[in-house]
Design a protein around this nucleic acid. Structure first.
Lengths: 160, 160
DNA sequence: TAAGATTGAGGCGTCAATCTTG
DNA sequence: CAAGATTGACGCCTCAATCTTA
């Protein structure tokens, strides 16, 4: 990190660069806050927890290995462990040993967890539309996909 | 929140909308993590704390009212109180009563805080360039500013 | 030795309650 | 009563250490 930290003359950001950066910063602060609050009011869980339920629901057998689940949710192994432990206490997820590799653990969505997800999904999608999708044009969405893909691609620091 | 939560047929996201949304989600998860880690390794503070120091440094007298500081850093009053308390313990910020309105508190950047900011700034800007700015074209930056502005403008849920 | 996963401690943020001043 | 700000409890995330199996 910070390879230029000791350089004498760092290249500061010009006005356009700063505006883009600050826009992105405020977005990364405000958007998770809004989404988290909506889900917390409805079901007492964060967006990360919601994504765990959602990813499991679309996986064969409603089950995934912890390590795979960790990747698709952009979550560290430790964070995921805590999250699944918390969801297990609520009865929405169960853990089983992976039969093919005894180091692995499988997270499985319970019927109760599935019902919770189905109860939350419509409101969540409505929030996503209201906060993001419906505020943007087709062109905006295309540009957003392109920019996000560029920033996430081949960026060790921004991916697992 | 979730005005359509009880609707029978929510409008689900199509593939393009979902790709844009998930791109934004992974960005809002990965980017703060990377920026936080860099600053934490250097000085033991989060990006939010860094922004507090940065905003104070550019204010007249290196001072701002808590409520104003709260707005420009996209931070709740409570969160800011905790942050300034923590920065005060490190000796980087001090608090004073606002002389014009005795309800108000002024956060003031100390000399030590200024030195810390000057030590961190070059590395931080280098990180921002490496992770974001230098990966995007002029056109990308223009599109990013436009999209961020749209999402943050007139959105009660995404602003103070 | 590495890979998969967990644990407990400590830091940060939210929430609700509270205090003071306008 | 409203506005500005703080506090303590609780939940989530990071980090480092640990355990088990490959």
């Amino acid at each position: 990190m910070s390879a230029d930290a000791t350089a004498d003359s760092p290249r500061w950001l010009d006005d356009d660069e700063l505006a883009a950066w600050l826009g992105l910063v405020h977005l990364t602060l405000a958007l998770p806050t809004a989404i988290d609050k909506a889900l917390r009011d409805e079901a007492g869980i964060s967006h990360t927890y919601y994504m765990v339920l959602a990813m499991l629901s679309e996986s064969p057998g409603r089950a995934m290995r912890m390590s795979d689940l960790s990747e698709v949710t952009s979550t560290s192994p430790s964070r995921l462990s805590h999250a699944v432990a918390s969801l297990e206490r609520r009865g929405w997820v169960e853990r089983r040993q992976d039969s093919t590799d005894r180091r692995g653990q499988l997270a499985v969505l319970t019927d109760d967890g599935m019902r919770t997800l189905e109860r939350l999904a419509p409101g969540h999608v409505a929030d996503v539309r209201r906060l993001v999708i419906d505020r943007l044009t087709e062109r905006d969405l295309r540009d957003l996909r392109r920019i996000a893909a560029k920033l996430l691609a081949d960026a060790p620091a921004l991916r697992g």
